[in-house]
Design a protein around this nucleic acid. Sequence first.
DNA 1: TATTAACACGAAACCGTTTTCGTTTGATGC
DNA 2: GCATCAAACGAAAACGGTTTCGTGTTAATA
Lengths: 339, 339
Amino acid sequence: MKAKITLKDIARELEVSISTVSKALKNSEEISRDTKEKVQAFAKLYNYKPNNIAISLKNKRTKNIGVVIPAIVHHFFTTVIRGIEKYANAHGYNVIVCLSEESFDKEVINMEMLANGSIDGFIMSLSSETQQKGDYNHLKEVTEQGIPVVLFDRITNEIDCDKVVIDDQLGAYMATKKLIDQGRRKIALITTDDYLSVSKARTQGYRKALQESDVDINESRILKLSTMEMDEERIQQFFDTNEVDAVLCVNEIFTVYSMRLVQEKGLDIPNDISFIGFTDGKLSRYANPSLTVVAQHGEKMGEISAQMLIDKVESEEEEESFQTKILEPTLVIRNSTIN
Amino acid sequence: MKAKITLKDIARELEVSISTVSKALKNSEEISRDTKEKVQAFAKLYNYKPNNIAISLKNKRTKNIGVVIPAIVHHFFTTVIRGIEKYANAHGYNVIVCLSEESFDKEVINMEMLANGSIDGFIMSLSSETQQKGDYNHLKEVTEQGIPVVLFDRITNEIDCDKVVIDDQLGAYMATKKLIDQGRRKIALITTDDYLSVSKARTQGYRKALQESDVDINESRILKLSTMEMDEERIQQFFDTNEVDAVLCVNEIFTVYSMRLVQEKGLDIPNDISFIGFTDGKLSRYANPSLTVVAQHGEKMGEISAQMLIDKVESEEEEESFQTKILEPTLVIRNSTIN
DNA sequence: TATTAACACGAAACCGTTTTCGTTTGATGC
DNA sequence: GCATCAAACGAAAACGGTTTCGTGTTAATA
């Protein structure tokens, strides 16, 4: 086991000072050709690599980005991470991922852990519990310390920071409109509780589309489920007691599960009933029939988030200007809707 | 913006030395009741939190775990990360995730980045390109530096370190046996190239089951695809030119896509043709029909990996003893097989 | 009264870098 | 022959902690 070699080791071996070694390795003009060559050769030979921790302590920059998200077994968040990773790595940053598992406490603990020097900034999406409580003090503390934060998808207006979202209302509007255009009138919405920022926006888009087309809004056709678990029974019951000819769901799972239920009832998708989901993941692509969805462009969202964060991290200026980037959702037409 | 407060700040403010503050906060017996209370109260008031970087530099431990995996948009890897996160967080560790994207170079770069002090140990699954090249020097270097490594799923025997795998051969064997027991004789295998350790083992299990039951092995019923992309055409062609009554696939995507193909041909699953896949993910659960799979227990695998790594990291002893943990796969019976 | 032990605290080294600010040496100018 | 200057290098502080080893004060003991 050959331990890591340090500047001090090189200095001792070559009988020069640590400063000389440091400068020589950086090709400083201060150091003579001879010495530089000697030092660099020695460093290469023993595979010297500077210690990141020491450098971090010195310049108070870690080159780490903290990502705090509610879950990872969701295709959407997975793609966002991928986008963050992609941009961050290309710019010399590592990504530290922490899962809040939709829990407020875990979110707070994770942030506190990371905020004590481990990271240069946060990219995060709020846990459902946090949005429910409406308690954002942990975010406030972090931003007050001068640590940049980028919120994506599940955001809040209570915190001044950069934000990236897709236009959820527009997405739901487009989807609903599409269903209406195809002659559907009894359009159901399967969503989660309104305290989730995205669900709220999507519900608004749904309502707006119906109103604009003078379709009556039947409240009993709106099903609100928990973010945490799939309540299969309530979905079953919903379809048992409601007559619908189209369904808009706020995620993949709700959609795919609902499709199976109505198929078991003998209904044909998309002829008897149409489906549109959110998130363009594998579930949607490989479902039977394949799913028409509102694509959220998670990877792009991740890239933009990382870019905004790194820009802030690397900008000297203290100017406190925050922007909110709104991405356009895209309707990906497949076989769960007509044509 | 209130900047982070340091020991030095507290010391200056309270007119004591830094050492006194440090000891007082650790409740050292050396310090008087009075001073301790004063210091602790002040620290609480100004929300003092020690700087992780400084501590890392001092004790040469970062409390970070580096995870290097080929991809994240695979349910299996996602669940492993979740398991690692769970165990690691519960033990005060953060998880730094790096994606190799199946690229050898990316894998090497990521490891080098992290090895320079950022992490205490690695948990990783090899990229397909690495397994293809058979070049494990980056792993060797890291282990020689004394950094603990745990390999999971995609492993190699060339490196001495802890390993966690499921018994892939057994998994494929069980699945194939199941199909044979149901009277299937023309069983296809859709897998990836043999250089992937897991694919090789699974192919062996498949062959073993057929041999034991005296079923002829028809090499044309074995389809080897690339790890990177879904070659839809080759799958289509495969089913056009082969007559099969059962299919074993090494991942979810291959299975689900294949099922759709044969369904479009008018075949009934599971009566005309049975399917078994690997990985018990959402795709399998919500496919139509739901998929019988060999469950890989990714989350458990992650937890065990994290446990093995943290044990090594925290053990003083230099004893070089490595173990390989082999998990038993489970056959989850659903509706893509009879009964 | 002199010695000593306990107590409470501070100085300083250390972790591995970077960087500023000397200092030494030899060469040059006048 | 002396001041000046550049070249080449080293000393030391700094980042923010931990920890070892004093050290001064007080009180108890001989």
